[in-house]
Design a protein around this nucleic acid. Structure first.
Length: 469
RNA sequence: GGUGGCGUGGCCGAGAGGCGAGGCAACGGCCUGCAAAGCCGUGUACACCGGUUCGAAUCCGGUCGUCACCUCCA
């Protein structure tokens, strides 16, 4: 069985059928770099990172394109608020770097390419011209320099989200400008006198800048072709963003995406994060509270299409699960280092794990397999079956590898850690001596002193191990 | 008004007609000087009401609750 995915346009799980066998082109809507990344942004990028890793594991050559929207109303507004409207590009770039750091922190691999909207203005202009030629777009009659997509001219409009044009509630757009119909949307926005000159580009319809939806059509076409395999993005982008992308690309004659993927949102205590509610949980907040692997686990553990609700204890639960896996890796590593059994078989992921991942990226079931393998490995260790333990360990490593869960590698080898090690080992020797003489009072005092310093110890059959808790 | 979700044991979270995923927490046991870690065991869970079926958490109809999108959002 091959890889299957829930196609939000088809509204069912379908077989992945790449246009070119063995190759998959994916376009994902990236962020508008207007303000710091929140966990929702992290989750979205993580979902496609997982898809990409799994497809690559399955032998596909994946081209993942995730754009950066670096010109937009909100960026201009943010720059204005920062008191330096001309330098909107500096703000956009600063925020973009923040996103990159946050992505990297939780092991999200850089996409194959990360195009910025401002670098594809030419493609957007030609796409706009094509749409006008074909009778699907019109320059506004009010002299604003705007160009709008004519939704009424495109019969399938609404096909992605199953809505009929007549049923759509009119946008209470504060500024209908030169639209013929409220449902029409801007391809090109004429420059307003109040806007910085640096935020506009020349066009046949006057100086201006691109509308939001246009960039994705232009960039996916430029890097993946007029027809490609998968288009992804957050569930909240389905309408109007993806609907409009689809309409303009198809109206321009492109086949566009074969499959649509949408990731679920992240809510906080049951509510969507939003600026107006002020309940956003930012990437830097969560990364300050937990190990990167814990954050990655938390955001990956639920199925990619379901909502993740953040609440008190979310991080602690994820941390407990991660520690369980991590401590098996540590424990088995110690046991196998002493008496290395026959080399484990190649790093293959268990079949049930693979089957779960194949089935619309069933990470939750895959994690169940991972945990079962950990349990079996621990049981093997308890029973002294090192060969079985080694096999489990290899499987666990393979699974965490595919999931991008970088565990056990956090051991820092700096001077401070080394010095701490010397001190702790000294104390443990003192404790061992006390225990040998059944002086448990002294032994427990040593343990308590270490615990007070945040160091946990475990007595093994031949040695005591310590770790920072 | 339109469109699409969701409601599973103390919590998180899968599943999608029959054999109780997995994690966390709790309780009992093994191990331990005591712990810790680990292992073994312990749960009459599927919003409500009808229906279909030998059998429904899963299918159908209805009710209630809840969330998202239709305005910028990953």
């Amino acid at each position: 069985m091959g890889v299957r995915l829930y196609d939000t346009k088809a509204r069912e799980v379908v077989d992945l059928a790449p246009r070119v066998p063995g190759r998959v082109g994916i376009y994902v809507c990236g962020p508008t770099v207007q303000s710091s990344p929140h966990v929702g942004h992290l989750r979205s990028a993580l979902v496609y990172d997982l898809w990409r890793r799994w497809l690559a594991h399955r032998g596909y050559e994946v081209t993942l394109v995730r754009n950066v929207t670096d010109i937009d109303d909100k960026i201009l507004v943010a720059a204005e608020a920062a008191g330096d409207p001309e330098r909107w590009w500096a703000l956009a770039y600063r925020v973009e770097l923040e996103f990159s750091r946050a992505y990297a922190a939780i092991g999200i691999l850089p996409p194959t390419y990360e195009p910025r909207a401002t670098a594809s203005i030419g493609e957007m202009l030609s796409l706009t011209a094509t749409l006008i030629e074909r009778g699907h777009a019109y320059p506004a009659a009010d002299g604003s320099g705007d160009v709008y997509f004519d939704t009424g001219s495109w019969a399938p409009y609404g096909e992605l989200t199953g809505q009929r044009r007549e049923d759509m509630q009119d946008a209470e757009d504060a500024d209908p400008r030169g639209k013929r119909d409220p449902r029409d949307f801007a391809l090109w926005k004429g420059r307003k006198p109040s806007e910085p000159a640096s935020a506009s580009w020349p066009s046949p319809w006057g100086a201006g800048r691109p509308g939001w939806h246009l960039e994705c059509s232009a960039m996916s076409r430029r890097y993946l072709g007029g027809a490609f395999d998968i288009h992804g993005g957050g569930l909240d982008l389905r309408f109007p963003h993806h609907e409009n992308e689809l309409a303009q690309s198809r109206a321009a004659g492109d086949g566009f995406a074969r499959h649509w993927l949408h990731n679920g949102l992240v809510t906080v205590d049951g509510q969507k994060m939003s600026k107006s509610l002020g309940n956003s949980v930012f990437a830097h907040d969560v990364l300050a509270q937990a190990e990167p692997a814990v954050v990655r686990y938390l955001l990956a553990a639920a199925h990619y299409r379901s909502t993740i609700d953040l609440h008190d204890g979310s991080l602690a639960e994820a941390a407990a699960a991660v520690e369980r896996i991590e401590s098996f890796l540590l424990r088995s590593g110690r046991a196998l280092a002493v008496a290395a059994p026959a080399a484990p078989a190649a790093l293959e992921v268990p079949e049930v794990f693979a089957a779960a991942m194949d089935d619309d990226l069933g990470v939750p079931q895959a994690l169940a397999v991972l945990h079962e393998t950990v349990r079996a490995g621990n049981a093997a260790l308890d029973a002294g079956d090192l060969a079985a333990a080694a096999r489990s360990r290899a499987e666990v490593a393979a699974m965490t590898g595919v999931l991008g869960l970088d565990l056990g590698g956090a051991r820092t080898d700096d001077a401070a850690t080394a010095a701490l090690g010397v001190l702790v080992e000294g104390m443990l020797e003192r404790r061992a001596a006390a225990r040998a003489q059944q002086d448990y009072r002294t032994a427990d005092e040593v343990r308590a002193a270490l615990a007070a310093a945040g160091i946990a110890i475990e007595d093994g059959p031949d040695a005591t191990h310590w770790s920072l808790s």
